[in-house]
């Protein structure tokens, strides 16, 4: 796994001591295009937050290749729509990693912003105040910001929400172009037909990874059935997963047997190219 771009080592992420992503192992290859699939509450968005680093792991680690730029399109942005900003102000935030706090925006930067807006079908929207955008237009503007970020790792959390079918095709084309440019892309997505049509690899999550590999194999009926049996609710009576001091030395299976929650056997293949 020399060309791993992201590596998860027994990664557990969650909230209030309840895991949302549980014991995830594996790696995401350079230049791979992965769909992240699963029911509501299966840990897809949590995994994205863990990779970006805005959620600290409860256990394990998420190792990111150093030096690479990361772009993240959250499922629910925390944008203040009443803020007096224009579309161009919003999209130009994407220049942050290159221009930082004080760097001047160059003519090329402005051209990049215009191009990005054009790519998502928002040409001429530069001066529009953001509070006049529709939900889908705002989503496209945010997509344009990801374009401007020009990142090596791109994480999109349900990017096609509120997007019309005409624009959907454009956005898929952009994702494929990124894939052609050997960027590493992970997309949280619910439309399995889109996954089958456009995504070479899929990670199927149900708090645990159910399957991870080539899309066709991951989305086999037995895997889907297993994912569907996933119980979304937290169990406040669930036993503690690993005692802080005693966990060391016990092998995975015996721990799984001792606890009230089932540990899936490690997925057979991960990130197969």
């Amino acid at each position: 796994m020399t060309d791993a771009c992201l590596t998860f080592r027994n990664l557990t992420l969650g909230y209030n001591s309840h895991p949302a992503v549980h014991h995830l192992d594996g790696s995401v290859k350079h230049g791979s295009l992965t769909a992240v699939v699963g029911l509501n509450g299966s840990g897809k968005s949590t995994l994205m937050k863990g990779i970006v680093g805005i959620l600290q792991p409860m256990a394990g680690a998420c190792l990111r290749e150093t030096g690479g730029r990361i772009a993240y399109l959250p499922q629910q942005s925390e944008i203040d729509r009443s803020f007096p900003a224009r579309v161009v102000d919003l999209v130009s935030l994407g220049l942050w990693s290159r221009r930082g706090l004080l760097g001047r925006f160059t003519r090329d930067d402005r051209a990049a912003i215009s191009n990005a807006l054009g790519s998502v079908g928002l040409e001429g929207f530069e001066k529009r105040p953001i509070d006049t955008l529709s939900g889908g237009q705002l989503q496209r503007a945010l997509f344009a910001r990801v374009l401007v970020q020009d990142a090596d790792i791109i994480l999109l959390d349900e990017p096609f929400n509120a997007i019309d079918t005409k624009t959907l095709g454009d956005l898929i084309d952009i994702i494929k172009r990124w894939h052609g440019e050997r960027r590493t892309i992970m997309v949280v997505i619910h439309d399995l037909q889109l996954v089958r049509d456009h995504f070479p690899e899929t990670l199927l999550l149900a708090r645990h990874p159910i399957a991870w590999g080539r899309t066709k194999e991951t989305l086999r009926p037995e895997n889907m059935l297993q994912a569907r049996r996933f119980i979304e609710a937290w169990d406040d009576e669930a036993e503690w997963c690993e005692p802080a001091t005693l966990g060391i030395g016990l092998d995975h299976q015996s721990r799984g047997a001792r606890q009230n929650h089932d540990h899936q056997p490690a997925p057979a293949e991960k990130g197969a190219a």
């Binding site: 970006v52 680093g53 805005i54 990361i70 772009a71 993240y72 959250p74 942005s77 925390e78 944008i79 203040d80 803020f83 900003a85 102000d89 919003l90 935030l93 942050w96 990693s97 706090l101 004080l102 910001r145 970020q149």
Partner: peptide
């Protein structure tokens, strides 16, 4: 003046600022 851009980003889209910078 020094933190203008960060102040704007922190008001407009705090989650984004957290994803690209520790500022």
């Amino acid at each position: 003046i020094l933190f203008w851009r960060a102040l704007i980003a922190e008001c407009l889209d705090p989650l984004f600022l957290r994803s690209v910078s520790g500022l």
